[in-house]
Amino acid sequence: MAMTTFEFEKPIVDLEARLAELRQREAAGEDVASELHVAEMELQKTRESIYRNLTPHQRVLIARHFDRPHSLDYIRALFEQFTELHGDRQFRDDPSVVCGFGFFQGRPMAVIGQQKGKDVKENVARNFGMMHPEGYRKALRVMKLADKFRRPIAIFIDTPGAYPGIGAEERGQAEAIARNIMEMFTLNVPIVVLIIGEGASGGALGIGVGDRVLMLENAWYSVISPEGCASILWRDAKMAPVAAANLKLTATDLLQLGIIDDIIAEPLGGAHRDPLVAIENVRVALEQALNELTPLAPDVLRRLRHAKYRAMGKFIEEVSETAEAAAGDTTPGPTSRPPHSRKP
């Protein structure tokens, strides 16, 4: 299979080539059974040792693989009668985000997904999954439709960022993202966010507020891309692997930090190596999330969603203002703030 492989996969590729050669010799009548067995064992071992110990930056590369299943692959596979709805009713239709309705296991619901292309041509048409303000406004329009008719929402995140361009600024990229984030806290229906590839910054968060945020094993989610971070903080984009490690952008990191709710497993080596397995795992995760969220009353949903994001952030809180003033000497200690008790 002529699939793009990465530098770090070279030992696997070499072993695969050796195995193919041995199989050929076997087919030609040579007795290579024991060599074949050894090579197979070694390939399995090498795969395990490489894929089970991926560095953050290697995961970033996998998350960007051209053949990785993208939003529409999941949507077409999981949503029957999916019907795309276009346009923000104000400016134009943004093709970098797909919105619509469909049936997920018989359940009518809204679907939104940032869409990348599989090749250069499709990528140009999709603007590499980088949304303009009208994309965020289209997504909000469809979310409000879902809210109006009490349908849950599934959102697939896969973007290298919101588009930085003249038109995007003229039409209020920042405002569009801010408004979406705010409005998503007012929705009365379950929102399940699935981070399937790249989750870059405000571009992702602009459609990324969810009651459940689930993330594929090799996806990344961060305040900035490792390259962007490296070129700003290290003044050298080649420092991206170091930036990636510092940013704590992997699913494991984010689960530990309480930013995401669960990790969805990928086939060994990444979702592109067996898309059907990845899609099935996403189906199971989405079904479970919906089963948990659907029984909740709208106000409970909203309150829990608010409390979840309210508790995010790490800071030191000295005992209290008055104690500080009275004693003049307080010992700072890290506190993780309990979820806010006030009803939103």
């Binding site: 961060s222 305040v223 903080l233 952008l249 990191d253 995010m312 952030g313 790490k314």
Partner: peptide, 15 residues
């Protein structure tokens, strides 16, 4: 940037 995802989430919290 030094607070990475935690800083991104402040956008959600304040909004």
């Amino acid at each position: 940037m030094q607070e990475s995802i935690l800083s991104l989430m402040q956008m959600a919290k304040t909004s």
